[in-house]
Amino acid sequence: MTSDSYTPPPLTFAEPGSTWGALAAAFPTTGQWPIHFAGEHRGRPWEVHHLWRHDERAACETLREQFGLDGRDEGSIQEDDYCFACGVVADRSGELSIGEGSTDLALLSSIADHPHPGPLALVSVADPADCLAELGWSGAMNAGMLGADARVVLKSWQTRFGAYVHSAWGGTLQLSVTRPPRTLAEARLVAREHFHFCRYDSQFHGTGGIGPYVSNLVGLDHWTFWWD
Score class of each variant (00 low, 15 high):
A85V: 13
S202H: 11
W33S: 01
E47A: 15
A150K: 06
M141P: 01
G171C: 08
R44F: 03
E186I: 05
P181M: 08
Q203Y: 05
V48D: 02
R192W: 12
E15V: 15
R92C: 09
D73R: 13
D4V: 14
G211T: 11
W169L: 04
C60V: 02
A85G: 09
A26S: 09
V89D: 11
L135K: 01
V123L: 05
Q32I: 07
E40C: 14
A187Y: 01
L63K: 02
G21E: 00
G211P: 03
D113P: 03
T2P: 06
A140G: 06
G147C: 03
G211E: 15
T12W: 13
Q203N: 10
R53E: 06
R182S: 14
G68A: 07
I210Q: 04
R199Y: 11
Q78F: 14
G87F: 09
L175F: 07
G136D: 00
T19L: 08
L189T: 02
A38C: 08
D55G: 07
N142M: 13
A143H: 12
H196C: 12
T183L: 10
D104M: 05
G87Y: 05
A25R: 08
L105T: 03
D228G: 14
A25P: 01
L184I: 11
K155S: 13
L184V: 13
H166I: 04
Q66I: 12
A150Q: 14
D70T: 15
G147M: 02
W33G: 00
R44S: 02
A168K: 01
L107I: 06
G71F: 06
A14S: 13
P180C: 05
R72W: 10
H36Q: 08
G71S: 07
S93F: 08
I210D: 01
C83S: 11
H196Q: 10
